[in-house]
Design a protein around this nucleic acid. Sequence first.
RNA 1: AGGACGGUAGCUCAGCGGGAGAGCACUAUCUUGACAGGGUAGGGGUCAUGGGUUCGAACCCCAUCCGUCCUACCA
Length: 909
Amino acid sequence: MADQNNLTAAELPNLQDTAADAAAANDSKNEMPTTYDPKSAETKWYSYWTEGGYFRAGGRPDAKAYSIVIPPPNVTGMLHIGHALDFTLQDILIRTKRMQGFDTLWLPGTDHAGIATQTKVEQKLREQGISRHDLGREKFLEQVWEWKDKYANTIHEQWAKMGLSLDYSRERFTLDEGLSKAVREVFVKLYNKGLIYRGKRIINWDPAARTALSDIEVEYKEVNGHLYHLRYPLKDGSGFITVATTRPETMLGDTAVAVHPEDDRYKDLIGKTLILPIIGREIPIIADDYVDKEFGSGAVKITPAHDPNDFEMGQRHNLPQINVMDESGTMNEEAGPYQGQDRSVCRKAITADLKEQGVLINIEDHVHQVGHSERSGAVVEPYLSTQWFVKMQPLAEAAINAQKDGNGVNFVPDRFERTYLNWIENVRDWCISRQLWWGHRIPAWYSESTGELVVANDEEEARRISGLTDLKQDEDVLDTWFSSNLWPFATLGWPDENSADFKRYYPNDVLVTGYDIIYFWVARMIFSALEFTGEKPFSDVLMHGLVRDSEGQKMSKSLGNGVDPLEVIEKYGADAMRYMISTGSTAGQDLRFRWEKVEQARNFANKIWNASRFALMNLEGVSFENIDISCELSTADRWILHRLNETSREITRLIDSYEFGETGRQLYNFIWDDLCDWYIEFAKLSLYGSDAAAKAKTQSVLAYVLDRTMRLIHPFMPFISEEIWQHLPHEGETITLAAWPEYDAALENPQAVAEMNLLMDVIRAVRNIRAEVNVPMSKKVELIIKAGNEETLSIITRNDNYIGRFCNTSSFEAGLNPETPDKVMSAVVTGAELLLPLSGLIDIEQEIARLEKEVMTLNGEVERVEKKLSNQGFVAKAPAKVIEEERAKQADYSAKREKVLARIAELRG
RNA sequence: AGGACGGUAGCUCAGCGGGAGAGCACUAUCUUGACAGGGUAGGGGUCAUGGGUUCGAACCCCAUCCGUCCUACCA
């Protein structure tokens, strides 16, 4: 039916070469194909941007600075779709701010990712039958550096494919010279302040990676285990005490049994001695409040070297600590007959022996949480060893106070502030030493003869301050997060506080990251920044969710459900991926990845492409200087300028408040509905008409609107917007540096909106009627319009060309009260009544039935509004504006209803 | 055990105090010169359940049920 709906141009004009095309060389084709091909545009423009140095910060010394540092991806491997989300959001912010005139810095970098990377490289070596110990520290590290270089390159390529506007001249790595210096400085300062200490503690030990882990590197999983009930005999032969344990092999290290001091069952036994089965060691019965009388037998075996709670109790009661395992989880000489067995083998063996000796009473099924290493997956062993710790309390307190005094960071969405506070308020000391090679080696030295400890920035300094010559550096390295902690300021030159970048770009404006690393990273950056720079590291933290698979499952290697961003880009283009991923969810909320969504985004890109093709076909001879939108314009022209202006204002506001989902919707609606479906169709009238002046005006508006529209979508879809913008009449080298469309009060035009709304109503209504009686749009019909008042009439007659064209009317009559024939179909819009004499096509009874249905609908509306208005409470309490709106609706609906009723009467009459 | 988030059209999700929305899917229609990766017109929802607050609740409060995820765990 809509065969006359789209007015079309005669032929494709030849497009002129643009300067950019010449600069980008290899694209010699001038015509724009009917579908957008992302590939050529993407490589072409990315190198154009980087060669032009457009991403480099510092070029606008008088402007306000705006800075973001990238959350450094691990050099462990390739970037996944979650990175794409994180980076796209940052790129959107940076590109927007850059266009708004800020001196923007987006600093790239990568993280050495201690355990993760070392594990990968060790794995690779193991396949060749080599262990890291075969190579030795130095040779091994050479291998890791090679690995790092390889993956850093891959990451660079991926960044480029995604179109990220990073300032590569300032790229950093967590193990580079500057960061290492900052790490040492921080370590020494904290040590000298007494905030770093070395101590023997129960830590989380990863027996596979043979290193300590921090609390948050442990993942608890529910495991179907057993509860073993054991009977320990009293030394005096007067009986037994029953204890329960989930880990019978640890009994070898038991140094006491504890009961609650007020437990009547055991009161008399406190202070007596038990004989530990198998080992035969004498151990005391002690009393401690920690014991829960209700659980199990009410008596607990105490293994200070293999359980954190037992460790603390052991300290309270001066119990010996007997470590029965070595660092690989193998039983040691303290385990007596079990020496040399793996802990899991030992469990089985000891269970059998205990059973045989009558010690084991029974085994119950028991579901409990067991800690696993986040990296290696091994069951974590609570293990007694000497490690380095950061004393958290003073640092945490300062961070809490800052947050509560209003000097905190602004979390988006704000609920994450509570997550953060909750953690930092309950934080425990942070174990920072790792028994690895890949990382920042701890700046501590020991005298080989006396064991004396010296902490210093380097060995020379250590010698100088201690006067010792036989120094040997600590073998361990620091937790990866110890360095990523300093990322927001160490990347900018700190500890040199006079560094230009530090002064200019610190604190950062926003940190964009996933909610899953609030504890690992966000919280630690905050307290570190406060401690060392005296300022918060960034003003805002934007937390996004996780990208999940189409079923809502977490993406993981083991499930094989991960999505490679490069594959998405290959299939649908970087812009489609960026648009889908950035507008597809709200802050803090997870996002399900579905290919259909990417396809939809690709279709949107294609729609933009084709709208631009249309424009370019009709902008021949228009130059940037000739664009003039200040003259007398048509309704549609004024309307689209109003809508563009309104949209610009909204987009700016929404980006500033990080509402990317809503931004996407507004852009989509504006471009697809307003610009393509309505404005372009309206514009065809003057573009194809004979009125040269009118055509020139519309060309101006079209060029102007498209230019600004490209700028608005540029942060989201950088490639296609640049490609199109370069073809359009434009000024400047790149859209990357084009000015952001600012709201302009002069373009406000409520009158054009009202006029356009009426015209759209009329056109839709006529289309409806024609669809109703199957009159194809190719067949011309007569249209009579009864306008409600002079103003409406004038709008209609002023725009009769549009109505005539879109409704395909052969004769068109409009008046306040024109003569109407009998056999008509009709529709009512606000302010006017439409009449289509379609004699021969209409069944009068059917038409009456249709109109009666319309009356029913209107009745419902009127009833609802009247009920509301007759409610005393509503009239008394609702805001005046709401009441006014309801009154207007009431008037509108009843007027419409009356007209429809009158029509029915006429048809009957 | 505590906490957070989610339950809206067949699907994926937005809206978060004033007439239930989008995209996809579906139906009908158009071999239209920007675009079939398109146009036009449609069908489809007691907004998880039960209370409460309010003139007015998908939206605020309480309770319940169902999902997802964190945090802490008793041997």
